[in-house]
Nucleic acid binder design. Structure first.
Lengths: 194, 194
DNA sequence: GCCTCCGATGGCACACTGTGTCAACGGCGT
DNA sequence: ACGCCGTTGACACAGTGTGCCATCGGAGGC
């Protein structure tokens, strides 16, 4: 597949030379293709990296939506985050994913983009929660709870990347969720939940 | 001041026509200057908007650092976030700031950039907390707690912008912090605090 | 008063990104 | 063999951001 070879070449060069120091022309030259072809598969240089996480949001949303309604939101959210962690750290080749995560975290443009992606996913999760629990429209709980899930996710992922994959991301996630549990259990100070 | 006139013209055009639909050439033409001069004051089109929040991080950091060490972290963080809220909603002309916040939230590039800025501030606050409480090096509390502050801030700001400034951002912040209080009080499940 | 120095500005050229348009190539079935 | 169609590459263009240099104008020294 052309897009895969392009992505492979890109990731290798970006990780080796650094993001800003690598031009799209460098990438397509190394892959033996034209810049026009590159942009047929990837909207921008950022996209080659960010698109790797494309399905992550949908998977988290699906996991959250698939959890039983009777389950406490804290547990449903923890499962959704676990899906993300497994996607990153357990999927196929953890070392490769680690390299990508580190590239994103150390490259401001990529970090910015990935955070914005997360903001979209967070809104999705909040919508699922809001539909499940029927709270007053002005309740902050769904939005805050969804954000807390990403607090746990990002804390775990950053620590994982910072320790070169030494720390166990699932254990980190669980520790973070233990800490957040009381806030997630509150459901906005006595408002009625599902 | 040249930079101020440039910024004023830019904000007006960006808010009116939209970010992507406005070129730097449009801005400098409206301000009667050259593109070269624009880039002497602002590194990029994003910068004209994002630079408005430049001092926010430092102010939050200063407020947090200035709180008494004996104060519970939850309260210190709430004060730091209050500084940010007042900066946005109470500073001078709330309507103008509201327009900027809305512009940022509805423009992906700007939203991404502002989130990345926040990530930096969050790390700063976490460092302050880590220095204050002496926890084990692998403790997640400082990092998580600092993130929670921004969860509250963003939830309040987005709700504020979404309601066209109707909702009181300070009240929203307090409600969010009430919800997060139990997690912030925990200090990582029995680890010793300052 | 004139000259020099210096900061601010503008013009130009350049590298890079991203998009639209079109021509060329190559497999495929008829 | 022919035409069809999807893939590719070539070119041109708009937009961004930077380096370099010429220019202008004011402040201060002579």
């Amino acid at each position: 597949m052309v897009s895969e070879e392009l992505r492979e070449t890109a990731l290798q060069l970006l990780a080796a030379r650094g993001y800003d120091e690598t031009t799209v022309d460098d990438i397509v030259a190394a892959a033996g293709m034209s810049r026009r072809t590159f942009h047929r598969y990837y909207a921008s240089k950022e996209d080659v990296v960010i698109q790797l996480l494309a399905d992550l949001g949908a998977e988290m949303r699906a996991e959250l939506g698939g959890r039983p309604e009777s389950e406490p939101p804290a547990e449903s959210l923890r499962r959704a985050v676990t899906v993300a962690i497994n996607f990153c750290a357990g999927h196929h080749d953890a070392a490769k994913t680690l390299a990508v995560v580190r590239l994103i975290l150390r490259t401001p443009v990529l970090h910015a983009r990935s955070l914005e992606r997360q903001a979209g996913w967070q809104a999705d999760l909040a919508a699922v929660l809001a539909a499940r629990l029927n709270l007053p429209v002005d309740a902050l709980y769904p939005e805050v709870a969804a954000r807390l899930a990403f607090v746990a996710l990002n804390t775990a992922l950053e620590r994982w990347a910072l320790t070169d994959g030494e720390a166990d991301p699932l254990e980190l996630t669980d520790r973070a969720f233990e800490m957040l549990a009381p806030a997630l259990a509150g459901q906005g100070l006595g408002e009625v939940g599902g």
